[in-house]
Amino acid sequence: MPPSPTAARRTRRLAPYGFLVPAVVLFAATFALPIGYALYLSFRKIEVKGLGLGRGARGETWAGLSNYASVLSDTELLHGAARILGYGAIVVPVMLGLALLFALMLDARRTRLRGFSRLAIFLPYAVPGVVAALLWGFLYLPSLSPVHYALGALGLPEPDLLNGGALFGALANVAVWGGTGFNMIVIYTSLRAVPAEIYEAARIDGCSELQIALRVKIPTVAPALVLTFFFSMIATFQVFGEPMTLKGMTNSISTTWSPLMKVYQDAFVRGDLHSAAATSVVIAVVTLVLSFGFLRAANSRTRQEAS
């Protein structure tokens, strides 16, 4: 018997929800639930009774907003934020500038060994961050570095790269070395998607290769630049592995050097999951507001230019 028309309509109405189920379940289990749990933890705290020794000495209670109050008044977190701003101010422009330059050079008509160069620039991205940090760490340590050895042999001053202002450059260098290749591929891919007719038209109009690069190529890959900037911003907010790895080699990287290192320190060294959860929530909100704020501003500008 064929299904009645109302039954068929109901099935049709329910079908989209059926298709949605796997995505919703995955989203809930792997995303919403952990975030919800972190939020829950951030409103709780541990309370110690008596000397705090023995059975039943610790209990969990509601903390209200006290965890958030202490996060927002934490000067160390602010200093950490300032440090990564300084770090990001070096990483993002240098990395994206190099990525754009390399992408344009690879895209230029006269470039040879294109495949090899592309791979060579991309390769550091395949090196895990911790390995990269260790590798550069060895090059930075004065008594081990061949660079310092060469400088010393030539009688030149040997810079101390792991302390003071140079530390920012040293850390940024690891990120630039590892990240340029990835960003270059993103920009290069979008360059290859530009129809050849546009260049032809530009050439007929008497454009030099340099002018094509500046006036045609860069504006057309603007969306890719926005995207890579967006990714780099988020990566800067989340910097953790490199300073964590180099920390043991120098006195100048504290255990709370970057905001995420502070979260790690709170959760896994101090054992205070609750304030770590509150800090994570604050970092997540700030990251979201700043990065999506940027994306929105950038998009509205491109839209304006297009219209």
Partner: peptide
């Protein structure tokens, strides 16, 4: 809404 539901569930 989803976040709140999840928070309630985890509680």
């Amino acid at each position: 809404v989803a976040a709140f539901a999840a928070a309630a569930l985890s509680t």
